[in-house]
Simulated scan of single mutants.
Amino acid sequence: MLKEFFQSNRKAILLGVVGIVLGAVGGLFYWKYMGDYASAESLIISSPYRTSMYGAVIGGLFLSFWEPRRSSQQ
């Protein structure tokens, strides 16, 4: 049952994983280049771990909204 689920939704799962990875990398770059990491005023941008996790969540949610196209073979 679980194996069938993963086989039938392989592309959607892959999109979610890619979104998580891209979001985490984007969050890290945001912290490094745009975040004010010298001061700890903001809880999100004060730590690279937090910005990476926040970016991973946003990236995963963003790419999970797209469903891969299904072939119309019947």
Rank of each mutant, 00 (worst) to 15 (best):
L22S: 12
G26D: 06
V18Y: 15
L15K: 10
K11S: 15
E41S: 04
M34H: 08
T51G: 02
M53V: 12
G59K: 01
A12K: 10
L15N: 06
M34E: 05
S46L: 00
I13G: 00
F6T: 03
M53H: 07
V57K: 13
G16L: 15
G26M: 12
Y33W: 15
F65L: 11
Y30K: 05
R69K: 11
E4G: 15
A12F: 14
P48E: 02
E4H: 14
Q73N: 11
Y33R: 06
T51H: 03
R70G: 11
R70M: 11
Y54D: 01
L14P: 01
G60Q: 00
S8I: 10
L61I: 03
P68I: 05
S64C: 07
F6I: 03
F62W: 05
F5G: 13
K32I: 08
T51C: 00
K32R: 11
L63Y: 01
V57S: 14
M34D: 04
E67W: 08
P48T: 01
L43K: 11
M34V: 14
E67M: 12
R10H: 10
K11C: 14
S52V: 01
S64T: 11
A40F: 08
N9A: 08
Y49K: 04
E41W: 01
G59Y: 04
V21A: 07
G27I: 07
A56K: 14
V17P: 04
Y30R: 04
S39T: 10
G60P: 02
A38T: 09
A24E: 01
E67Q: 08
S39V: 06
A40C: 12
Q74G: 12
M53P: 03
S46K: 09
S71D: 00
V25Q: 09
L61N: 00
L22A: 02
G60F: 03
A40L: 11
A24N: 05
W66F: 08
V25Y: 05
K32G: 09
S71P: 04
A56V: 05
Y37N: 04
L22T: 04
G55C: 13
M53G: 11
L2T: 00
S64W: 05
V25T: 09
S46Q: 10
G60C: 01
F65M: 15
I58H: 12
P68V: 09
L22P: 01
S39I: 05
F6A: 00
F65Y: 14
Y49N: 06
G59A: 02
P48A: 06
Q74H: 12
F29C: 01
Y54H: 04
A40Q: 12
G19W: 09
I20L: 11
E4C: 07
L43T: 07
F62H: 01
I20T: 14
L61F: 02
L15S: 11
L43S: 14
G16R: 09
V21F: 13
K11Q: 12
Y54W: 00
S46T: 02
Y37R: 00
D36M: 09
A56Q: 10
G27Q: 12
W66D: 06
F29R: 01
W66K: 11
I13C: 07
L14E: 11
M34K: 07
A40W: 08
A38Q: 00
V17Y: 02
S47L: 12
I58E: 06
L22I: 04
D36S: 15
W31F: 11
V17C: 07
F6Q: 00
S72W: 08
V21S: 13
Y33K: 04
S52N: 04
G23N: 02
Q73W: 02
R50I: 13
G19S: 13
G16V: 14
L15Y: 10
I13P: 13
